[in-house]
Design a protein around this nucleic acid. Structure first.
Length: 226
DNA sequence: CGGGTTTGACCGGCGC
DNA sequence: GCGCCGGTCAAACCCG
């Protein structure tokens, strides 16, 4: 029999959240509904790896907050696809607003957005994801450490847009945060890139070998909970 | 003193 | 070519 213990250490999380925060269920619900090719340029790995970290329980929490991004016109089309025939939205899941490709939603140059809309994966050079949460606090604690490098007022919006970069050396993940111009109760967050480092504060579970008594890293998730 | 924030300047893409 | 706009830079500043 193994004895498990938690060790404070980093863990390689493929996408941008490494901590279960009140906002995370929004992200995961969105990930579950989102067609994989839009999630990351390298494929569906991000979605597949992310889902176990934020499970069904998370999906059932914090229902009053929302879901997902809006585009600059505020009238995105309905979701084009739902990944996997077996996916069933949790009964209490908050209504999900229509999904549009994140590049278009994030206000990227029209050429890039159009390429993403058209499914031209080669046109994009980074992974981008955007979503919207109802929050008084614009800074959601996603477990990573961010450094603000810019603030800009954007046209047609009364709210400024803030620019953040991952503080970890060598990691060029960025995020933009701004209040929804149509409803300032909501915060629109857009991530760009994949962290290339472990997440500060993520818990590893270590296991002890009964024979030798030695500890070893068993993974990010408690084996009994897998 | 080191690291993060602020903020005006600068730059490049895009539309006209 | 010009102007607008979004994104980034970097110096000054702030804070623990």
């Amino acid at each position: 029999m193994h004895m498990y213990m938690a060790a404070a250490a980093g863990a390689s999380t493929p996408f941008n959240f490494c901590r279960q925060v009140p906002h995370a269920d929004v992200f995961s619900s969105w990930m579950a509904r989102r067609p994989a090719p839009h999630v990351g340029g390298s494929g569906s790995g991000a979605a597949a790896s992310f889902a176990p970290t934020f499970g069904a329980a998370a999906l059932r929490q914090h229902l009053d907050f929302f879901d997902y991004l809006s585009d600059d016109q505020g009238g995105p089309p309905p979701p084009a696809a739902v990944p996997g025939p077996s996916f069933v939205p949790p009964p209490a899941m908050a209504p999900v607003e229509p999904i549009v490709p994140d590049a278009a939603a994030a206000g990227y140059p029209r050429s890039v957005a159009a390429a993403v809309v058209a499914g031209e994966g080669s046109a994009r050079t980074t992974d981008r994801i955007a979503f919207r949460t109802r929050s008084d606090d614009e800074i959601l604690d996603d477990g990573y450490k961010w450094r603000k490098y810019g603030k800009k007022s954007v046209k047609n919006s009364p709210n400024p847009r803030n620019y953040y970069r991952c503080s970890t050396e060598g990691c060029n993940v960025k995020k933009r945060v701004e209040r929804d111009k149509n409803d300032s109760r909501y915060v629109v967050t857009m991530y760009e890139g994949i962290h290339n480092h472990v997440c500060p504060g993520t818990v590893y579970f270590a296991a002890q070998d009964a024979a030798s008594g030695r500890f070893f890293v068993a993974g990010m998730h408690h084996p009994d909970l897998n």
